[in-house]
Amino acid sequence: MSASATTPSRRRRRPSQIVGGWARAIGILLVVLAFIAPLIWMLLASLKTNLEIIDPSKTFSFTPTLKNFETVFGTQAFGPIIGNSIIVGVGSTLVALLIGVPAAYGIARYRVKSTTAFLLMARIIPGVSLLIPWYFLFSQLQLVGTYTVLILTHIFVTMPLVVAIMSSFFEGIPEELEEAAQIDGSSRIGAFIRVVLPLSVPGIATATILSFIFSWNNFLFALVLSNQYTRTLPVAIVNFTSYAAVDWGGLMAAAVVITVPVMIIALLAQRYVVSGLTAGATKG
């Protein structure tokens, strides 16, 4: 018997499969370009002068300058403002985790799914409808312009996210593991701390990262409830616009300062976010 007969023939791809593969690759490339192109333009614009930004011939041919970043960190003093955003983002995320994780555990174990839906409805309510009562309430308490009021209001954004992610995650952890720990002498709270929480690290990491990003990007609450000493980055970026003109170079440099840290966190933690969301989507 010839060697050609004994060797299995390689399956040839059909023309329709080849065309489908190329179409899929082109579609993915177009989607990636649609997301990356604005970021590339923003980065390039942050290294140009205002005249070069509005000149189409200078899209890629220009002399890079760091003057816009000098304006951001010099004239506009973005250093303390970055600190404000970190304080508010970390504070609101920690409080949301301390309250939301036990609440999500109770919702998952006692099958109170309507509570999760009710909390998620808070994300549907326009934030502007809450600002007026919040402003009057916190002004009476003399909290307007403090980190406390910003953290408390950002919990309105982060808490539903933590509860939604963690309740789904807890539902995927078998209750038999907790029952085994209780048989060994652990209390219900002890089983939650020693057994459930270690298994929930991917979900907690996912909730932490997404909550911080949502708080970092929040603009409306800080615009009304902060002052010049506690304003966050999304509010400070407004200083580059005025009635007469817009400092496009400074605006783009400030946008880079706001965007890059979040993108780095998202890229570094992408594995944890994906694993946390997929684990919470499975049961058993």
Rank of each mutant, 00 (worst) to 15 (best):
P15Q: 03
P15Y: 02
P15L: 08
S16A: 11
Q17R: 03
Q17E: 15
I18D: 07
I18G: 06
V19Y: 02
V19K: 07
V19S: 08
G20F: 11
G20L: 13
G20K: 11
G20R: 10
G21K: 04
G21L: 10
A23I: 06
A23Y: 07
R24D: 10
R24N: 14
R24Q: 12
A25C: 06
G27Q: 12
I28P: 07
L29V: 13
L29S: 14
L29G: 15
L30H: 09
L30P: 12
L30Q: 07
V31W: 08
V31P: 08
L33H: 05
L33K: 07
A34C: 06
F35V: 13
F35D: 05
F35M: 14
F35W: 13
I36E: 07
I36F: 11
A37E: 01
P38E: 10
L39E: 07
I40L: 15
W41H: 14
W41L: 09
W41R: 14
L47G: 00
L47F: 04
K48Y: 12
K48F: 11
T49C: 03
T49H: 08
N50R: 09
N50K: 14
L51D: 15
L51I: 12
L51P: 10
E52I: 10
I53M: 15
I53H: 13
I53G: 11
I54L: 15
P56M: 11
P56N: 06
P56I: 05
P56D: 08
S57R: 14
S57H: 14
S57K: 13
K58Y: 13
K58G: 08
K58I: 13
K58N: 11
K58V: 11
T59W: 15
T59E: 08
T59Q: 15
S61A: 13
F62D: 00
T63S: 11
T65I: 05
T65H: 05
L66W: 06
K67L: 03
K67H: 05
K67Y: 03
N68S: 04
F69C: 04
F69R: 06
T71L: 06
V72W: 03
F73L: 10
F73C: 07
G74S: 01
T75H: 03
T75D: 06
Q76C: 00
A77Q: 04
A77K: 08
F78P: 01
F78E: 03
G79V: 01
G79R: 04
G79W: 04
P80R: 02
I81N: 01
I81M: 05
I82C: 01
S85N: 00
S85H: 01
I86C: 00
I86M: 01
V88F: 02
G89Y: 03
S92V: 05
S92P: 06
S92N: 04
T93D: 00
L94P: 11
L94D: 02
V95L: 10
V95P: 02
V95Y: 08
A96C: 07
L97S: 03
L97H: 03
L98R: 05
I99H: 02
